[in-house]
Design a protein around this nucleic acid. Structure first.
Lengths: 217, 217
DNA sequence: ACAAATATTTAGATTTGTCTAAATTTATTA
DNA sequence: TAATAAATTTAGACAAATCTAAATATTTGT
């Protein structure tokens, strides 16, 4: 597998998790920041290798083999992210780009050893679950902070948007994974929230609340 | 820089250290396991980028910029090798191939942090010196075990051949970097050696002795 | 259900890195 | 030093991954 092929496989997997239904050439092109014609070419190649189901004009999906590959790449990506944060002291907003490169390193043993060094983590620094060595993959509950009702409390377990800007916003406001967040009030007008986190009262826009995963307690 | 370009730069640097004089297209082709015509193409490209001095039929050498690049890649390679051995418990015969991939990861900060994690090592697991962040590069004394005279003692400081077969031979015979080796006798016929290492008497062929670097004491 | 809009694919070109075969230059040696 | 051998470069081709522009298919709206 080339790096490019791996990146397409990963993108198809992520689109599959997000949206429902088939994945269109255009959607994939947008995700890959490339042109639809390039996607068509690549789909033909991946289809020949048995990694995707592709029929002209019918959209694309991963085969079992393709899904296995995707999980392997995502496992590598997320383990490397944990390594960067836990062992090399990177901030969670700096690790994505480096992990994008490291995820393509080929060595089963390397990943197993890394997993061991990190003590078999189940989640990456953004709260995303790390697929197991044999492809086990438990999706996290996708309850968003914006879905909690007034008065209830949740533990922050992940971010939906893991862009550096969003992560730095959370840092600035001292909101971290593991924090308890209580919904004090909700504005009817814009659905913004008044919350209590760590003894502090904060005001969060709906957009922020839409990008924080919580576990209700 | 593409991976391929980096590999050529590295190969030119290593050939420069080994042999004397200019580096020929054929020598580089052999080292890169490719065809001379491919080398010619690549030399033109690297020359345009200012990384090598290249004139048709005149051989090639690195520019200052090319040398800086080579040292940076070698630094990354060797730091990753230390990481694999020290932190992930790999044997010294398993790390080269993985480091060949890792050396192409782009992130200055990553390498600085790795250097720090490993406590600023000066040598890799094979005893090769690790270039500094600013391009400092001290070549190791290149005294070979085969050059020691009878009765003298040296500390094993490196291997010239770092192929897995040779490294496993050393493991099998419990010869490791740091060991003291005393030359007990030398056979005139084949220049093989009788040595004392770690209280044990061993018999080494000249070929083995030609691939072990020592520091005389 | 047909025309217009949208999505997708095809055709043909480009870049990188490679190859083989042919041409050319440099080195050797008789 | 001239011919032969060896080394090197050129020419032309190919695969991967991309692009633009044109052609084709599908979807939508009236």
């Amino acid at each position: 597998m080339t790096h490019s092929e791996e990146n397409y496989i990963k993108a198809i997997f992520h689109l599959g998790l997000e949206g429902v239904g088939v994945i269109s050439t255009n959607a994939l092109a947008e995700r890959m920041e490339t042109k639809p014609s390039s996607v068509t070419d690549m789909m033909r190649r991946l289809s020949e290798k048995g990694l995707v189901n592709y029929k002209k004009y019918q959209g694309v999906s991963l085969t079992d083999l393709g899904t296995k590959m995707a999980l392997s790449i995502i496992r590598k990506h997320r383990l490397w992210e944990v390594f960067l944060v836990e062992k090399l002291d990177f901030n969670w907003d700096e690790v994505h780009e480096i992990a994008e490169q490291l995820e393509h390193i080929e060595s089963e043993k390397l990943i197993d050893k890394l997993d061991e060094l990190l003590n078999y983590p189940k989640f990456d620094p953004h709260g995303d679950p790390i697929p197991g060595k044999n492809g086990e993959f438990l999706e996290r509950d996708n309850l968003l902070l914006s879905q909690l009702s007034i008065g209830s409390t949740g533990i922050c377990v992940g971010v939906k948007d893991s862009s550096a800007v969003f992560l730095r916003f959370l840092d600035k406001n001292k909101i971290a994974l593991g924090n308890e967040i209580k919904i004090l009030d909700k504005e009817e007008f814009d659905n913004s929230l008044h919350i209590l986190v760590d003894q502090r009262e904060l005001h969060l826009s709906q957009q922020i609340a839409n990008n924080l995963y919580v576990k209700k307690i």
